[in-house]
């Protein structure tokens, strides 16, 4: 399954919510969709889920156009909106069963699909509970179950982790990893960028309806934050050698901005990983007793803050 967003544009009156964006990703991958509020993430996701129609452009789900064959495309997509399920007077089982019926599943096939989704999303213990009585985390699971009930190949999740407690977030992450293993193509938007870094293979950063960065996480990190920060910690009784170490580091050509922070030496290196190894070898040769030598990668949050300006349409 290949998802291709092609020159997508959406106008609401005079407001351009999505401005000619293009990106793509494949099945088995989790693609993060990042941007400030009002950037056009939800609109794009709603277009992919066939709820909105684009003003121009198209989205192809394995060649199926969402504008030409929305009914067929709808069968390929499972959408988890940012709002949790309504229909508070229905039980969890009834809710999932209703959507299985709505997707045209019949008889035993439906019963099997509903049971499988209930088990996968770990809601088997609350099947007879009314939706209004569920916690946010449980509602999110039910919402995910609803999106999965017809076994779609593409999953579009709009802020699924919003408002969840840490345990629920970890569980959601595990579920998403399992889904990626099952070869689902997942597009997920979230403001919790550290989590996205952990679960996503690729990312799109969008602002004012335009793409600022896109690619694999590594590519984006490399492009947007080419320098790596390295942290060195000497054995505690050698901390008096920190000023000397600082001086020596600054003399090395690959090192920039060396400084001491709470007993540790932080410096930035413009070289690649072999350059870092070389620095380490030199320091050991000069008999520094190094307790810790680690690189910190720039994460999505740093990149997000660098490339976006917080503007909305």
């Amino acid at each position: 399954m290949k998802i291709q967003v092609r020159n997508l544009r959406k106008e609401f009156g005079r407001t351009v919510a999505v401005d000619n964006i293009s990106f793509g990703f494949d099945s088995g991958h989790v693609f993060g969709f990042v941007g400030p509020n009002g950037a056009g993430k939800t609109t794009t996701m709603r277009i992919i889920a066939t709820i909105e129609e684009p003003t121009a452009g198209d989205v192809l789900l394995n060649g199926v156009s969402i504008t030409e064959e929305p009914e067929l495309a709808r069968k390929l997509v499972g959408y988890v909106p940012d709002l949790l399920p309504a229909h508070g007077d229905m039980t969890v089982h009834e809710y999932l069963d209703f959507f299985a019926r709505a997707y045209g599943m019949r008889g035993r096939r439906r019963a099997r699909a509903v049971a499988a989704v209930e088990e996968f999303t770990h809601v088997t213990g609350i099947l007879d509970k009314h939706l209004k009585a569920l916690s946010k985390g449980m509602k999110q699971r039910v919402s995910l179950g609803r999106a999965l009930v017809h076994d779609p190949e593409v999953l579009v999740l709009d802020e699924p982790a919003a408002g969840l407690d840490p345990r629920a977030r970890v569980e959601l992450r595990e579920l998403l990893n399992l889904l990626a293993e099952r070869k689902k193509a997942i597009l997920i938007s979230s403001h919790i960028l550290t989590e996205l870094t952990e679960i996503c293979n690729g990312v799109v950063i969008i602002e004012r309806g335009r793409i600022l960065e896109t690619g694999t996480i590594e590519e984006v990190l490399k492009k947007s934050a080419p320098r790596r920060t390295v942290i060195i910690r000497l054995l505690e009784r050698d901390h008096h050698r920190n000023p000397q170490l600082l001086r020596e580091l600054l003399e090395m050509p690959q090192v920039d901005h060396a400084r001491e922070v709470a007993g540790e030496i932080h410096f930035e290196s413009s070289g690649d990983e072999s350059a870092a190894c070389e620095i380490l070898a030199r320091l050991i040769a000069r008999e520094y007793r190094i307790l810790e030598f680690r690189q910190t990668k720039a994460n999505l949050e740093d990149i997000f803050m660098t490339v976006t300006q917080g503007g909305v349409q």
């Binding site: 290949k2 291709q4 967003v5 092609r6 020159n7 293009s22 990106f23 793509g24 990703f25 494949d26 991958h29 693609f31 121009a56 452009g57 198209d58 504008t67 293979n201 690729g202 990312v203 793409i211 896109t214 690619g215 694999t216």
Partner: peptide, 14 residues
């Protein structure tokens, strides 16, 4: 042809 082909689509991990 009204829907132009995608410009150098930055396809993600594949």
């Amino acid at each position: 042809a009204v829907t132009p082909p995608a410009e150098a689509t930055p396809t993600g991990p594949s």
